[in-house]
Write a protein that binds this DNA or RNA. Structure first.
Lengths: 343, 343
DNA sequence: AGATCGTATTTACGCGCGTAAAGAAATGTC
DNA sequence: GACATTTCTTTACGCGCGTAAATACGATCT
């Protein structure tokens, strides 16, 4: 890096011996200029410290190089993990990732999208809150900005949906639990914030009936995203009231299961599949903390990597296609049984 | 909202009956125009859907309204929680928060700062990785951009530091543990990624000596940010090798403790302070998951709210002051003992 | 009523870059 | 070597807004 500070593309073009429009072309797509000129530019880039002004660029470009990522709750390591995967892929594709969390609040979700709208992103990857989401506002946003919906499906939202195959995954677990012990009861919130929960309940019922067992569902109260707290409180209640019709509990998600396990521990119930165990508990999601529960949690894993990859590829191709045309395609990725100690 | 789309500030100024420069002034600071003109602008704002182009604004403004937030590891709910607090305050102050995670990787930390630099933020709130950070690169960034360093102190970095009082907090816990049972051994990583760990070890030694006990430190191997995994693996080793000189273990942080508790559970050790318990385990941080461990984790809490508040206030005043002048001031916020079941 | 002060308006320029058009130069083809 | 083709240069304009300077206006005060 030399001393003379480069102030703008004009000056940089001068020192690299190339015209400004060509330099501009290079920055928009390095492959669009001849190899020899590209070399000259890149040599100059090593000698001088210059980067195009991002605001001036985006002001005039029809499409920015920004991709928004909106998740419902970043303090949940599950979403943090998916977001991390997506962010990496987005960056590798040469885009700038803007990560936003709705913190479980519908208004924040709207605000995030409005904020994104003002930076004119090329595309957005959106994991909606679900039940609490303002559908109309989301739909209005998706009409204006290319959007791929992931994790939590909202009918008709965005150009595509990429998510977890709740049916397959639930069936996998039910089958396993039935095969290895008492048929499970299903433990969930009465009004889950996320529609995945509904899919899982329905799949549970279907799987149980298919296997010739009567489905039993325990629906607990709780309104917010403090799933562990809800699982703990209601788990303790359900256990002490002996409201469980089976010694096997299939929680709608790992966070509820984490709370449930804490409650079981506190009440002195031994959880696991060996003798001497009073209860089997299973979860769903393969949450980052599920391997450190006591006992470690048997669960069904999302395919984190593939969900991220497919989501990013989809939004990139939508951006490249420039039209919102075509069907809204849906991709469901299969889950995998993670056998640990709790069931 | 009426039909005629407003395309720019010129048109908006026309329909609101105010000159464009005055409208510009309004958007930069609504309080800087007369009440009557302000009313007229805000009336027009309700009738027409207009927002200034963010890129054109930032291109010319000397200072943008962006504030960067960089944390070492967002998949850690501890940082997610602090980030959430900070983000909220930044937004309330009328700034746009740009949240970035270094994912535990020094190169990513540099990349984040470089990326931030290109959007010319008014200020940055930086929680560095710590030991692995590239000090020179961070320092170079802080020379150019007003920065407040938080959580993990790097000597001389930024205009100020806001963080947790590790000395006070550690002493609090040591005193409690000594008072209620056997003096604790200190369980930590030999080469912790974060300098807070060093402060805690030193404070532990000092507190033990002050109370007339010989400090005992167990240093375990492990290089990355998978603290639970390290605590689990090494906790299991230490327990089975009977390498602990006390029945009381004070873990350097909650994530290690979470792993340790999982190991103890698996090995059949009962943790807690009642009779029949083989071990007491304490942590440090009041990690969001520490209330759901088995048993629930006794720990020392950060003052999340105050750390966020003080950090944001500091960066705002640095931005307002426009100079990097003055001392680098340090704020340490006291921790609070969180008594739960594990110790 | 005139003087005074705080605001608003008018005019004008600049920011750094995208992009279009026309012509020049380099490259590839036979 | 002549030609077609690709790529670069030159020139020029526009994007939407910040901001400065000079001027005009209105409210307030004496």
């Amino acid at each position: 890096m030399d001393e003379p500070k480069i102030r703008n593309m004009e000056e940089f073009a001068a020192v690299s011996g190339i015209s400004r429009p060509t330099v501009s072309k290079y920055f928009n797509d390095p492959g669009s200029v001849r190899q020899t000129t590209r070399n000259r530019i890149e040599q100059a880039l090593e000698r001088y410290d210059y980067r195009p002004n991002i605001y001036a660029m985006n002001q005039n470009r029809r499409l920015t190089k920004n991709i928004g990522i909106v998740v419902p709750y970043l303090a949940d390591p599950f979403f943090a993990e998916i977001a991390r995967n997506i962010e990496t892929l987005v960056t590798e594709a040469g885009y700038r990732a803007i990560l936003m969390s709705s913190h479980g609040k519908p208004q924040q979700e709207i605000d995030n999208l409005e904020s994104l709208r003002s930076i004119r992103p090329a595309g957005v990857l959106l994991a909606p809150l679900g039940r609490a989401s303002n559908r109309d506002a989301l739909a209005a946003f998706c009409r204006d900005v290319p959007t791929v919906n992931f994790d939590c499906n909202v009918e008709g939202l965005g150009e595509a949906f990429v998510g977890h195959n709740n049916e397959q995954a639930t069936e996998l677990m039910v089958e396993y639990l039935v095969r290895t012990g008492e048929p499970p009861v299903f433990f969930e919130m009465r009004t889950p914030p996320n529609p995945n929960a509904n899919k899982r309940r329905i799949a549970y019922v279907a799987a149980m009936e298919r296997l010739g067992h009567a489905p039993e569902i325990v629906q607990i109260e709780g309104e917010n995203w403090d799933f562990e707290g809800i699982g703990y409180r209601e788990g303790a209640r359900v256990i002490s009231e002996r409201a469980l019709q089976s010694n096997t509990v299939f929680c709608s998600n790992d966070r509820l299961a984490i709370g449930f396990l804490a409650a079981a521990y506190e009440l002195g119930l031994r959880v696991g599949r060996g003798e001497g165990c009073a209860l089997r508990v299973a979860g769903h999601d393969n949450h980052p903390y599920s391997r450190y529960t006591c006992p470690t949690l048997t669960t069904v894993s999302h395919n984190y990597g593939l969900i991220a990859e497919k989501s990013v590829n989809t939004i990139l191709s939508v951006i490249a296609a420039e039209d919102g045309g075509g069907e809204r395609d849906m991709t469901l990725l299969d889950g995998e049984l993670i056998m640990r100690a709790s069931a």
